[in-house]
Amino acid sequence: MPRLEEIHDNLLDRLKEAKDQGWLGEVASIETSVAAAEDKLASMREMAAKHTTTSLGMPNFGPQTGRHSSDR
């Protein structure tokens, strides 16, 4: 994510330069890239904010310890 944030910042700098120079084709291309980077960053932040855990269940050590269930 830090690398994508650097790329996004660089794109914003390039966009400003393209607008200052009047490079309309470049402006349109960079705006597309900026929007894609922002979407990806938002997705990455959303995924990072989720606290997901996976339940692995409890192992059954009964047979190894000689204990048996009475529910036969």
Rank of each mutant, 00 (worst) to 15 (best):
G57M: 05
L15M: 10
R14A: 14
S43V: 11
A48M: 15
L12H: 09
T54R: 11
M44S: 03
A49D: 09
Q21R: 06
V27A: 02
S70C: 00
E6Y: 14
D39C: 01
A18Q: 08
T65W: 04
L12I: 10
S69K: 12
S43Y: 10
D9Y: 09
L56W: 02
L12Y: 12
N60D: 09
M44K: 02
H68N: 02
R45W: 03
R14E: 07
A35R: 05
E6N: 12
A36M: 07
V27Y: 10
R3E: 09
Q64E: 12
P63M: 03
P63E: 01
G25E: 04
D20V: 05
M58G: 11
A36F: 00
D39P: 04
D39I: 08
H51C: 07
I30G: 06
L11F: 15
L11E: 10
L24S: 09
N10W: 13
G62L: 03
R45K: 14
M47R: 15
M58W: 07
P2I: 04
G22P: 04
L12R: 15
R3F: 13
K16C: 08
H8C: 00
A28P: 05
D9S: 02
L24F: 15
R3N: 06
A42H: 11
E38D: 02
E26P: 00
K40Q: 10
S69L: 00
E38Q: 15
E46F: 14
R72F: 04
T32F: 15
S69H: 02
S43L: 06
P59Q: 09
E5S: 01
E26W: 04
P2G: 01
A37M: 04
L4A: 02
M47E: 13
T32S: 12
G62K: 02
P2K: 01
L12F: 15
N60I: 08
K40I: 08
A35Q: 15
I30T: 14
A18F: 14
D39K: 14
M1H: 10
N60H: 06
P2E: 03
